[in-house]
Simulated scan of single mutants.
Amino acid sequence: MENKKNERQLQINRLQQNLSSIRKIAGWSAETLGNKIGVTKQTISNLENKKTPMTFTQYIAIRAILDAEIETNKDNEALPKVISILLDSVDSIDDNEYKEVQKSVETVAATASGGVASSALLGLLGAISPLAVSLIGTATLVNWKKLLK
């Protein structure tokens, strides 16, 4: 039971740490994401700036919206790959590698907010972080929905 609680909290923390980058790669403003999950853009800002901790309910809402975006927007090839690396990888990245990839994704996200195409974002991610590209195919995925039980 304690192990499941720790895994749940780790997943929540990872999403909160990477929310800004993931949101930008999805092509959303803070207001857009807020509208999708029924909160204000200020709430999204507070989560991204870690002024308030992310709740499990917020985690579930955001992950569900991200899953829906991945299903419906096949043109955004970068989003599922970034989510796979930053949120769903288990035991395949040590802390130093994770931080390296995280910084690379932040750079890619800054570019994404400028309106760059998804395929170009993947190329940029590969150029900045060959480690990220190698992890895309090898990451052991966590089914985040298992955390609901």
Score class of each variant (00 low, 15 high):
Lys51Pro: 09
Arg8Phe: 05
Ile60Gln: 09
Ile12Leu: 09
Glu106Arg: 05
Pro130Cys: 08
Leu141Gly: 05
Asn73Ala: 03
Ser104Cys: 01
Ala132Gln: 09
Asn18Met: 11
Ile70Ser: 02
Asn76Gln: 06
Phe56Tyr: 11
Thr55Gln: 07
Leu131Arg: 06
Gln11Asp: 07
Ile25Thr: 00
Gly114Lys: 13
Ser104Asp: 00
Val133Cys: 02
Thr52Gln: 15
Arg8Met: 12
Ser92Met: 14
Ile70Trp: 00
Gly38Thr: 10
Ala61Thr: 06
Gln58Asp: 08
Thr107Cys: 04
Gln11Lys: 09
Met54Arg: 03
Pro80Val: 07
Lys24Pro: 01
Asn76Pro: 09
Ile65Asp: 01
Ile44Ala: 06
Ile37Pro: 13
Leu86Phe: 08
Asn46Ile: 05
Ile65His: 02
Ala68Pro: 00
Leu79Phe: 03
Lys50Leu: 09
Asn35Ile: 04
Ile70Pro: 03
Arg14Thr: 10
Pro130Arg: 11
Pro130Gln: 05
Thr140Gln: 08
Leu147Trp: 02
Ile128Met: 03
Ile83Trp: 04
Ile22Thr: 06
Pro130Met: 09
Arg8Ile: 11
Gly38Met: 08
Thr138Met: 09
Thr72Pro: 00
Lys50Arg: 13
Ile62Gln: 03
Ser134Pro: 01
Ile136Cys: 02
Thr57Leu: 09
Ala127Asp: 14
Gly115Lys: 15
Tyr59Met: 03
Ala26Gly: 02
Val82Trp: 00
Asn143His: 07
Lys149Met: 10
Leu33Lys: 00
Ser21Cys: 03
Ile136Asp: 08
Gly115Glu: 15
Leu135Asn: 10
Val82Arg: 00
Ser118Thr: 08
Glu77Gln: 13
Gln16Cys: 06
Ala127Lys: 12
Leu79Asp: 01
Leu131Val: 08
Glu77Asn: 08
Gln16His: 07
Asn143Glu: 08
Ile12Ser: 04
Leu19Asp: 00
Leu10Thr: 12
Glu71Asp: 13
Gly137Cys: 09
Gln58Leu: 06
Ser20Ile: 10
Ala26His: 01
Ile25Gln: 00
Ser118Tyr: 08
Ile70Tyr: 01
Glu48Asp: 06
Gly115Ala: 12
Asp88Arg: 04
Thr140Ser: 13
Lys81Cys: 02
Asp91Thr: 14
Ser89Gln: 08
Ser92His: 12
Ser113Gln: 14
Thr72Phe: 00
Gln16Ser: 06
Ser119His: 12
Ala61Cys: 06
Gly123His: 15
Ala120Tyr: 07
Arg8Thr: 11
Ile83Met: 15
Thr43Gly: 08
Leu125Gln: 07
Gln17Leu: 11
Met54Gln: 10
Asp95Trp: 08
Leu135Cys: 14
Asp94His: 15
Thr140Asn: 11
Glu106Asn: 13
Asn49Tyr: 03
Thr52Asn: 15
Trp28Leu: 07
Glu106Met: 05
Ile12Pro: 06
Ile136Pro: 04
Leu122Gln: 13
Trp144Pro: 01
Val39Glu: 11
Asp94Ala: 13
Arg23Ser: 04
Lys103Met: 11
Val90Trp: 07
Gly34Asn: 09
Ala132Gly: 07
Gln16Pro: 05
Lys103Cys: 11
Asn3Leu: 13
Ile44Cys: 03
Thr140Gly: 05
Leu122Lys: 15
Glu31Met: 06
Gly137Pro: 10
Ile65Gln: 09
